[in-house]
């Protein structure tokens, strides 16, 4: 009753209108501003991402996701392959086609990839906020994006930002499927695909493979609709396939590496 009689102040009403009229522009501004700052900083180059980027050269030559190293001080020009298996290989796989696009300019290839995922990050957050339009007022959505345009968003940087963007997309797609009340194969594949991409970028997202299937299962129980179990099952299946795929790839990579070391010794 209390909430039905609530009359928002004029500034809120004006910002609500501003959001409705300008939300797409604000989304574009948020993406553009973060891409601008990313451009000034240059592509991320911390330990993890630096090695994921560097491994692209050998991948392009058909030698897998590996770095060039030397083990022999008696001939330091002898190059051995060092497979990059501490992280999933997806970042390097995504970089490879962009290298072709940029004529093997790794700076621009890495920058383009970062920009693409910054776009995914903001589009996913935008979709999530819109999915909650009944409980998050227009003026608040306006304020969140305005703050992100003027200051910064909690992106986390480097490959973490890329997997976080996919994870947010997973949550956004889940919320839209629930809002539209569509526990279908298509939604399951879309949600599972976004989750799989997050996991293929960072091992840290592996444990979350359990979360969404469990939440969909519980929701199906609460709503007495087993169709939600189907969505949870698809997400779990795609997640498990991703884990298996990455582990197998890394296992094969390590095998190639060991074979090379053995042949040298």
């Amino acid at each position: 009753m209390e909430e039905q009689t609530y009359r928002p102040p004029a500034w809120q009403t004006r910002l609500n209108t501003l959001w409705e009229r300008g939300k797409w522009g604000l989304l574009a501004l948020a993406i553009a501003s973060q891409c601008f700052y990313a451009f000034i900083d240059g592509p991320a180059y911390q330990h993890d991402v630096g090695q994921q980027n560097g491994a692209v050269w050998n991948l392009l030559e058909g030698r897998g996701v590996a770095l060039n190293v030397s083990y022999d001080a008696n001939d330091i020009s002898t190059v051995a392959l060092y497979p990059v298996t501490w992280w999933p290989p997806m970042k390097t796989f995504l970089l490879a086609p962009l290298m072709t696009l940029t004529n093997n300019d790794i700076w621009w290839a890495a920058m383009l990839l970062e920009w693409a995922f910054l776009a995914v990050y903001f589009v996913a957050f935008f979709a999530l906020l819109q999915a909650f339009s009944r409980v998050i007022a227009g003026w608040v959505r306006f304020a969140i994006f305005a703050v992100w345009v003027l200051l910064s968003a909690p992106t986390g940087g480097d490959t973490n930002m890329m997997s976080l963007a996919c994870f947010i997309l997973t949550i956004a797609l889940s919320q839209w499927s629930l809002r539209l009340d569509r526990p279908t194969l298509g939604w399951g594949l879309a949600i599972g695909g976004a989750m799989a991409m997050a996991m293929a970028l960072r091992y840290a997202y592996y444990p979350y493979i359990a979360i969404l299937p469990l939440a969909f299962f519980a929701y199906g129980v609460l709503m007495k609709r087993k169709a939600w179990w189907l969505v949870g099952g698809i997400v779990a299946g795609m997640g498990l396939l991703t884990v298996l795929g990455v582990l197998l790839y890394n296992y094969a990579q390590s095998g190639v590496f060991l074979a090379q070391v053995q042949s040298e010794t």
């Binding site: 911390q46 090695q51 020009s77």
Partner: peptide
């Protein structure tokens, strides 16, 4: 050093990951 390794990776250069000895000398065939 991680930045250094990253920079080396960016241009497909070689990073030494072998053993270190107090009296080690360097040699190369190229």
């Amino acid at each position: 050093p991680t930045y250094t390794f990253a920079e080396a990776g960016m241009v497909n250069a070689v990073a030494y990951r072998g053993e270190w000895q107090p009296d080690m000398t360097l040699a190369t065939s190229k």
